[in-house]
Design a protein around this nucleic acid. Structure first.
Length: 269
DNA sequence: CCTAGACCCTGTACGC
DNA sequence: TGCGTACAGGGTCTAG
């Protein structure tokens, strides 16, 4: 569920609720995430939340003695609720952070997420990831220069390359469609003009999605909670066999890196 | 080095 | 109703 925009919304919600507060306790019910949660996590007890930032889809929570690093994987989710309210445990409620009079609860069915304490940000998770898409240094010129010798496809590059972090399958599809670039083009084949357009559309689409609001935290009042605010804005993702919004031709679907890629061979070149 | 593919895990949707 | 299969918003590791 959490795309970069939802992680951004989660960041804002956590900031509003917990900035400056002390983490009094943490309960780990299931430590088996992408990396097993180690005993080190208990170092966050009695620490104050000083700042919260995001890099790609990673959440970086600064506390007195280091950082808490959070990633939501495919299915991770945070809920915030008052300690006084009755909130029964659900399946896959792996972690509770008890902060002041509230509980921040981490739920993750597929357990591809991540939660760890780290002394500094010099670790294998953050060291090799690219610029955040909103970083000023992520511009058309940067993408053009950096992609000159890259033989993999442009979609693969923006999704998992080391150049830029946090662009998921949905937004990779959407940004390439908006830029009229075929996702299976070799990265090195992009012109400078196309690179500029692609970077513009990545930033633009992510920004729009953030404004629409992720639903991960806010939805905990609702019962369904599956519809993301941006779902209605999607132009090509999940539109297999449907007419292209620009030209009416049928959207095709291929597989790249085991992920679905949607394309309009008429609009995208 | 680079790239494609397998893999981690559970829930859901769909065909038979 | 029940069972088997494919697939899902991510990232990492490894084989070639």
């Amino acid at each position: 569920m959490p795309e970069l925009p939802e992680v951004e919304v989660i960041l804002q919600e956590i900031s509003n609720n917990f900035l400056g507060e002390t983490i009094s306790h943490i309960i780990v019910r299931c430590p088996k995430l992408r990396e097993p949660i180690s005993e080190e996590i208990y170092k966050i007890k009695n620490q104050i939340i000083l700042s919260i930032k995001r890099k790609g889809k990673y959440l970086i929570i600064k506390i007195n003695n280091g950082y808490i690093l959070i990633h939501f994987g495919m299915s991770g989710n945070f809920l915030i609720f008052s300690k006084k309210s009755f909130f029964p445990l659900k399946k896959h409620d792996h972690i509770d952070f008890i902060i002041n009079n509230k509980i921040l609860r981490y739920n993750d069915p597929r357990r591809f997420g991540l939660c760890l304490w780290t002394k500094n940000l010099n670790n294998k998770f953050l060291n090799n990831i690219g610029l955040d898409p909103f970083d000023k240094n992520f511009n058309g010129n940067y993408l053009f220069i950096k992609s000159r010798k890259i033989k993999k496809t442009i979609k693969t590059l923006i999704m998992q390359g080391r150049l830029v972090s946090g662009i998921g399958n949905i937004y990779a599809n959407e940004a390439l469609f908006a830029s009229r670039i075929l996702p299976n083009r070799k990265a090195m084949s992009l012109t400078k003009k196309e690179s500029i357009a692609l970077v513009f559309n990545i930033k633009n689409i992510l920004l729009k999605a953030i404004k629409k609001g992720g639903t991960t935290i806010r939805d905990f009042h609702k019962t369904d909670g599956t519809q993301g605010g941006f779902n209605n804005e999607l132009k090509i993702y999940n539109k297999f066999k449907k007419p292209c919004v620009n030209c009416g031709n049928i959207i095709q679907c291929i597989k790249q890196e085991n992920r679905k890629t949607y394309l309009c061979i008429h609009c995208q070149k």
